[in-house]
Design a protein around this nucleic acid. Structure first.
Lengths: 204, 204
DNA sequence: ATATAAAATGAACACTGTTTAATTAAACAG
DNA sequence: CTGTTTAATTAAACAGTGTTCATTTTATAT
């Protein structure tokens, strides 16, 4: 009797299917994914794909997840430990945005999808112990406690900064703004506004 | 010989098709739109739809456009002329966001679509003589000229505020935040940050 | 070599957008 | 009222989609 594939064999085939799907995304975007195309590229018939992925959604979700993880890696590999906390945050966000704009399809897919499983992925940022949001939240709390920042809920403020950054990134992607200088100008101005807004000062 | 339909007759039928499409969107979202469903609802066969709309994209684009116009109306109908400029802007943005969150599918469709014809629609906001962005831009220019706001490019700052608002709105839609109080808290905090950041003051 | 179970296939189903030949319907002339 | 003409509508087909499942192929243990 034919032996059941072990987990490693299955993993290899799943990986091959994922790689083929990603290559389709690179050439035709997420809309271009079709089970038949994936199958042909992987050297299978369409039906076989279902032996490795429950359905198309699961396959696509996996591809999105792996793409987004690459974007997140850009944040984590950006250390800049010698700078002030504000500059650290700024650099991390900029690294994140730069990575997102290099994989716009993936960024869009993960940020816009209201599929529960994918919304959950975005909150990786919120939950991961060293995720950008947590670092940001702690820095803000520190600033408030030391009376440097104005009063406010650090959790809410952190999320607003993150959402604001997302909005600008998304608009730059949608409007196909590619010029590195323009991108930098927009991002710097946004952080200037937001961080300046955090300072504790009376309004004139 | 059968007379050609006049423009009014065609308009009426187009309108009927649009109404049917919108009713599908309301029940199943934009993904639910299919020419066959639209045709059946409108009392036609699929082929006939193509007499009134070049293709599905054109039909969908028209539906998106009309939906977004409704969102924009909310901004325009929000007068609040007795308040300060900052409060006017704040109120307009809040009206816009509230309208967008009541028609999330349409807002999402218009803001996320990189289809040239639809990106053009979003710049209605930029171009319309009394669009939110222009008002914002003028107010910012005034603040800078009167030495009240810090130095900066009003066009860029206006776009950043708009993009930041979009980001927060989109995240609240995606994360299905429905509580009116929470929505208000997030929006107010965002404007506090951004407008406070605009003030001309030395950083401590 | 053969039996057995797992993997892979191929065909089918129900759907999609779109095109086009054929049909139906309406308005005019005689 | 009867053709004729022409526009509106339809029905059928095409190529594509995701998915399922009976059938076939394949690899292994006996």
């Amino acid at each position: 009797m034919r032996k059941k594939m072990d987990d490693e064999q299955r993993r290899v085939i799943r990986e091959k299917i994922l790689v083929c799907t990603k290559s389709i995304v690179e050439e035709e975007g997420f809309e271009g994914i079709s089970i038949r195309k994936v199958a042909e590229l992987a050297g299978y018939t369409p039906g076989s794909i279902y032996q490795y992925f429950e359905n198309k959604d699961v396959l696509v979700r996996e591809v999105i997840k792996e793409g987004y993880e690459k974007i997140l890696e850009a944040v984590l590999s950006e250390t800049g430990h010698s700078l002030t906390i504000e500059k650290q945050i700024r650099q991390k966000f900029k690294a994140y945005t730069r990575a997102a704009m290099e994989m716009p399809d993936y960024y869009k897919a993960v940020m816009m999808n209201d599929d529960k499983a994918i919304v959950g992925m975005t909150s990786v940022l919120d939950n991961a112990s060293n995720g950008a949001i947590i670092i940001l939240e702690k820095a803000i709390k520190k600033g408030i406690d030391s009376n440097e920042f104005k009063e406010g809920n650090p959790k809410i403020i952190a999320r607003i900064i993150w959402a604001s950054n997302f909005g600008l990134t998304m608009r730059m992607i949608t409007e196909k703004i590619n010029d590195e200088e323009t991108i930098n100008a927009f991002m710097d101005e946004q952080f200037d506004l937001l961080f300046n807004g955090l300072q504790k000062k009376e309004r004139t």
